[in-house]
Amino acid sequence: MNEASRGAWGWMAAFGLLVSIGMSWRLLPLRDLPDSGRQVREVPGLLMAVSRSPEFAFGFRNVMADVVWLQAVQVAGNRKLTPTEYDRLYVLLNVEADLDPKFEMPYLLGGLVLGESPQHGREALRVFERGKVTHPADWRFPFHIGFTHYFSLGDAVAGGGAMAEAARLPGGPTYLPGLASRMLSEAREPEVALALLAPIVRQESDSARRAVLERRILDVTVERDLQMLEKAVEKYREKTGTFPAYLPVLVQDGILAAIPEEPNGGKYLLGRGGKVRSDRVSQRMRVFQKK
């Protein structure tokens, strides 16, 4: 091949490329291009089939899991997800977990995103539960389970229980036992909160954390006493038709055996409308929730 013919082949190749670019440009508006994951509704067929029998990944499980995870990120990354997209995200997270159960990020992030949807709280829980099975020593999974129970499903008892479970695991932040007891207290079961906190305090070896926990026990005890006193006030009102003037009236009337001692060294005081408060605790235990 001489120099001239080589040049001719080169020009022809360049011309061919130019024509193909023109064709491609002409075809562009004629095709439906998904601008985001929003329009892609299909589930990962082949990868889903492989995920059911991961041995058929032939040693490429991780990379397949990554492909599914990247798809899930594209779906979850949309500003506002439709119910169909939440469904698809749930499927993708399960496929990913089948392929690589140890990868923790999909459980944590995917579960949180699913929990944002009012209709997908249960799916979010299932995602976190799967993560918890694979990472039983990681406090974040029961923590997020508790979070979802409380904030997505409105189940304070289950939420507090999961938070207490997270608090028992190593590495968790110091506020977890407090959060657990606050949730349970708001569910008007401070006795349960106290029962959960007691073993946590006993197992705590760090003095700073133990001090925080002991303060929390005092708070829960106050909440328990306040609820008990408020019930007694209500009983008095039902009996006499008026609120008592002072708390000792409840003892005099035989409704209570004694007024409990305020564990912080203060006093319980009766307020307007039958509400009871402690002079040492300014705020009742309640997990604040913006709705």
Binding site: G59, F60, N62, D66, V73, M105, L109
Partner: peptide, 24 residues
């Protein structure tokens, strides 16, 4: 560049896809 598409554990994508490439 592919790892940038992920959320968290970015370097994992590099290791997984890179090793899969070496394998294939």
């Amino acid at each position: 560049f592919l790892a940038d598409l992920s959320v968290g554990d970015f370097a994992r994508i590099i290791a997984d896809v890179g090793l899969a490439s070496i394998h294939i």
